[in-house]
Design a protein around this nucleic acid. Structure first.
Length: 342
DNA sequence: TCGTATGATTTTGC
DNA sequence: GCAAAATCATACGA
């Protein structure tokens, strides 16, 4: 026997009593004057306890009996009067609550992280943003990137399945309560407003559970994100070609090894790294070069020769007829070195 | 395993 | 705010 039936049988059980004795005030008065109220209450309690043992048919019969009782309309109107008075006292409690700012914050965050709302490629945008924030290269992060996306997708899936469960449970419970109230409204006065209020109460309760789910999901995303950022922080050497490009620029601009923003962007593009990594690289290079010119001399000469050869090739291709332009020589490089370090 | 190289971060000075 | 300098943390080769 489910709760609803039990409650209804409870009502009908009392209805049965009403039919016999309670319905008639004169008979009650008579019994009280005879000194039997305590025994009656005992009987009532006993009958209430016996309700759960009754079959559904018996319960239905009792319910029917109550609904057909001659005193029912009178009882109903009395209840309506009482209701009218109590409704006055509970008015003003029914204003709709403004949207909870905490829920709004959680919703916004889940939306931004790609957990709720339409799928944004499993949060690749968030992953890319995290990678950019950490100054990572877009090429060397593919493994961690897909890992992040997979984990975020997992969180998303769990979140949605839990949310669906809560919503289903909420709607089932709401329907159940509404049916119960509608059923009871045949016996006692229940206004649609009251049913609405009850539904709102249920929704509030369920939304607080939902908030807990959202909170846990946000925490999970935060943990994942911080782990991902930590992983990105791991130092990785630039590839050989990138280092060559940077060194070439550095040694060919030794007199002023401070690339402009445009030059940094160009270098970043060529090397497959970020502008801030280019800045870091030049910062480190300048200081280390300055500290130990001797150690970098060989490298400097190497790049000076390389630059000279490249320049010669370009000029030879451009004008074979003209006399070859004087390439950047080691002497020129030494001249730059003096100017930068002085 | 250790020393060095190197990218990133923090501190400092202008 | 930017660059220099110091420092940290990790990669890498012997």
């Amino acid at each position: 026997m489910d709760d609803q039936t039990r409650m209804m049988t409870g009502l009908t059980g009392l209805g049965g009593l009403a039919q016999a004795d309670v319905g008639d005030p004169d008979s009650v008065r008579k019994q009280q004057s005879l000194g039997q109220p305590q025994q009656d209450i005992g009987d009532i309690l006993q009958q209430i306890m016996a309700i759960t043992d009754e079959s559904l048919d018996e319960a239905q019969a009792r319910k029917h009996a109550l609904n057909c009782h001659r005193m029912k309309p009178a009882l109903f109107s009395v209840l309506c009067e009482i209701k009218e008075k109590t409704v006055l006292s509970i008015r003003g409690v029914q204003e709709e609550d403004p949207p909870d700012p905490q829920i709004m914050r959680l919703d916004n965050m889940l939306l931004a992280e790609g957990v709720s709302g339409p799928e944004k490629g499993g949060g690749s945008a968030a992953a890319a943003a995290a990678a950019a924030a950490a100054g990572g290269s877009p090429t060397d992060s593919s493994i961690e990137h897909s890992d992040y996306r997979a984990k975020l997708a997992q969180i998303r899936q769990i979140y949605h399945s839990e949310l669906e469960k809560y919503e289903q449970a909420c709607s089932e419970f709401t329907n159940h309560v509404m049916n119960l109230l509608r059923e009871q409204s045949r016996t006692r006065p229940i206004s649609p407003k009251e049913i609405e209020r009850m539904v709102a109460i249920i929704h509030r309760k369920f939304s607080s559970i939902q908030m807990q789910l959202k909170q846990s999901t946000c925490e999970a995303v935060m943990i994942l994100r911080s782990r991902f950022l930590d992983a990105r922080r791991k130092r990785r050497n630039f590839n050989k070609q990138a280092t060559e490009v940077l060194n070439e620029y550095f040694y060919s601009h030794l007199s002023n090894p401070y690339p402009s923003e445009e030059a940094k962007e160009e270098l970043a593009k060529k090397c497959g790294i970020t502008v801030s990594q280019v800045s870091n690289w030049f910062g480190n290079k300048r200081i280390r070069y300055k500290k130990n010119i001797g150690k970098f001399q060989e490298e400097a000469n190497l790049y000076a020769v390389k630059t000279a050869v490249d320049a010669a090739n370009v000029s030879a291709q451009a004008s074979q007829a003209n006399s070859p332009a004087t390439p950047n020589s080691g002497t020129t490089h030494l001249c730059y070195v003096e100017r930068f370090t002085s």
